[in-house]
Design a protein around this nucleic acid. Structure first.
Lengths: 257, 257
DNA sequence: AAGTGGTCTAGACCACTAT
DNA sequence: TAGTGGTCTAGACCACTTT
């Protein structure tokens, strides 16, 4: 691990194309990233100082700054005031998984359909009352939905909504499109924030039946609790999907681009 | 949903404290965020223009820009060139889970211990050969590790390393600290990048025994495949943890701070 | 003291969207 | 055409780390 900037090597790399549609800071970030991918800059190595980069690529300090901030945000370098900017080592702990992939499911009307299996007014039991911070017996709207991908059951959703006759949302929530809104936030929304848990579980009898699984099978469970603008819970529910149909992939470290 | 900036309302909010240790752009971002939390700016609403914010808070365009970019990065607003900047609705699809929580486990030497259950040279079978892109029968180092939290088995790890007599890493990999390095990237590293999969599964007999579970139980499985600086796979393995001891939580939307 | 990153200014020009 | 965000300049000062 070298402690000095690899100035000599970097000097030979590409320069910034002023005619390009790509902003200078993006180009610079790519150049630096590329030197890491190529192994010119290794984990632990120090990047050239901002002043050096300004001179070498003939851009202003703010532009260099932004390029480096981009890399910091991407988690590939770390900047330490007074010391320098260094290439971060690959760490599995930096891996992140997002539900964005799942979101595509809801938008893909070609292959995915949503069926409302059940929707009725239900008095809250102890568990529901606790989650939604309401009294036991207070009315909720209980909804069960099933998503099918190419006809095959893929996701089973259950949801309890606080019943409020003043809020016309209830009607809308029953519609098939309501799920989509929950997931990608299109259209009107009364949700301010939400808590989401990801768990692994084994399908119970009801779930197995609905998802058409015969043997015991592992599944992902996304529990969600949404709040309105008064920070009152209004929706508690969970999605369950077969483990053999769901997978989350991600990458860490230096990738091509 | 209003289509006009809530200029009048925002005008009354706090101003920027020049004496504060907090950068101006952070303060401005907080002020804007606060207006969203307070419901002054609702999903779909347009933020005041950059010029307006410059004037109102007496900062330069670049500072306003950075504040807004912060919010864009946080995913709470979306900026559209030529139109304006708008508050994004809450979307479950925006949720992200990271393995950082898990990382704490490895650093917490007070409560967590790592035991090497097995470590031996092993010829690659078809599956291992395919994953590591080597020939069947080629030698690998097979390692089994068990992590205990306060004495209770919590994570079971199996790993195949390409055996390379020229690389002294093999010795080091056997050490207990090797796992920590894999996860948080401290010290020397020969890893350039990695692919990570998150799956839900049911513990098999061996896993149940090692994790001291009697009944069938769901589990999280993190499969990892790491590459060296020549983009050759050198490590394939997976962590398995009991579902009742592992949970991933996250939040979406507007949070307090 | 010298070098580093962190912040900030006060403008400028451009591309895009709306009217 | 006016207003918006997107980029960029050429400096400045500060806080911090190292020598």
């Amino acid at each position: 691990m070298s402690l000095k900037p690899k100035s000599a090597v970097l000097k030979q790399t590409a320069s910034i194309d002023r005619e390009s549609y790509e902003p200078a800071y993006v180009q610079l970030a790519k150049i630096l990233r590329q030197s890491m991918v190529a192994g010119i800059l290794r984990p632990g190595d120090q990047l050239p100082s901002e002043a050096q980069l300004c001179e070498r690529y003939d851009v202003s300090p703010m532009t260099v700054r932004r390029a480096i901030n981009t890399l910091v945000d991407q988690g590939v370098v770390v900047a330490e005031q007074g010391r320098g900017t260094f290439v971060k080592p690959v760490a599995m702990g930096a891996a992140t998984f997002n539900l964005g992939n799942l979101q595509n499911l809801f938008n893909d009307h070609e292959h995915t359909t949503v069926h409302v299996l059940e929707a009725r007014i239900l008095g809250a039991d102890e568990r529901v009352a606790r989650k939604l911070n309401i009294k036991i017996g207070q009315r909720t709207v209980f909804i069960r939905r099933l998503l099918r991908t190419d006809g095959t059951p893929s996701l089973y959703h259950r949801e309890y909504l606080v019943y409020d006759p003043l809020r016309p949302i209830v009607e809308a929530e029953l519609e098939v499109t309501a799920l989509q809104r929950l997931f990608n936030g299109t259209g009107e929304t009364i949700l301010k924030h939400g808590d989401i848990n990801l768990e692994a579980t084994i399908l119970n009898d009801e779930e197995s039946k609905i998802l058409q699984v015969s043997e015991p099978m592992a599944a992902f469970c996304f529990e969600h609790l949404f709040y309105d603008f008064d920070d009152k819970p209004i929706s508690w529910g969970w999605f369950i999907g077969r483990a053999d149909c769901l997978r989350f992939s991600t990458q860490v470290g230096l990738l091509m681009n």
